[in-house]
């Protein structure tokens, strides 16, 4: 079973678990294709040099090798790479893209071959115009080759575990002096608000100083309105420090 969301497709396993596949957009796919194109050109240039050397032995054989290698590399590169690297070419690997079956099943050789051979239509009338239009208009970001082969190109983000040391590197948290209020805070704050707080603290150095000040001000005011702590506990705490203390309570509860 599948459902479409913005730039993603949700599949449900027979066990009832839903997972999302993030669809790769036209821009990142074009960049990956440009990388692949460079690889193909580099391989052809190398083989061209080898053909020239072979030309000293036989002009005829050199010509045959040049023609055949051009054809095999230009047509076979995508097929071979996607088969060996399970839906990835060098360009796709660099941009963390992967071709997958649209039902989330294993990608088969005929699907890979079909989507690569149908590229001739996607390339028409030049510069991937048909494929590009199809990609932009399709709800699943599919070019015609993907549509016929029942494949999707997905983005697979690199996952980094959050570094909790950045929240409160061994600092005293005055809010913890009121465990009952901390428990109320944990209950009241929604996961979305908690996530905004966490990301604000983890990415605070990347923010513009004014934006950082405003964001912390708004978050601190929201948190304060949910569960007011005694004034002596929060006295002298900056808004950012307040948010940091709240995030520390939310994500690192002390047992």
């Amino acid at each position: 079973m599948s459902a479409l969301g913005a730039n993603s497709i949700t599949l449900q396993t027979p066990e009832g678990i839903r997972f999302r596949l993030i669809l790769a957009g036209p821009l990142v796919r074009m960049l990956a294709w440009l990388v692949d194109l460079s690889v193909i050109v580099a391989a052809l240039t190398t083989l061209g040099t080898l053909s020239t050397l072979l030309g000293y032995v036989s002009q005829d054989l050199a010509l045959a090798m040049g023609i055949l290698s051009y054809f095999v590399i230009s047509v076979g590169y995508g097929i071979v790479m996607e088969w060996l690297w399970r839906g990835q070419t060098l360009g796709k690997r660099l941009f963390r893209l992967r071709v997958v079956d649209e039902q989330g099943l294993a990608l088969s050789l005929h699907q890979i071959t079909m989507r690569n051979l149908l590229r001739v239509i996607d390339l028409l009338p030049g510069l991937y115009l048909v494929g590009g239009l199809s990609l932009v208009l399709s709800r699943r970001c599919q070019r015609l080759g993907d549509y016929a082969a029942a494949t999707l190109v997905t983005f697979q983000p690199r996952i980094l575990a959050p570094d909790f040391q950045l929240i409160m590197p061994d600092k005293y948290n005055s809010l913890r002096d009121h465990p009952h209020l901390c428990a109320r805070l944990i209950r009241k704050i929604s996961p979305e608000q908690a996530q905004i707080g966490l990301q604000t603290i983890l990415r605070r150095e990347e923010l513009d100083p004014t934006a950082r000040l405003e964001l912390c001000q708004r978050l601190a005011s929201d948190f304060k309105s949910m569960v007011p702590f005694p004034p002596e506990t929060t006295w002298g705490l900056s808004d950012e420090h307040y948010v940091r203390n709240v995030v520390d309570i939310l994500f690192q509860p002390k047992s």
Binding site: L11, F19, L105
Partner: peptide, 24 residues
Amino acid sequence: FSSEIELRQHLESLIARCYGEIHE
């Protein structure tokens, strides 16, 4: 229980890969 987006994405990508292997 949580909205830890990146971690969820990581688990989703693991399950997506397993799903292809198990249910094919």
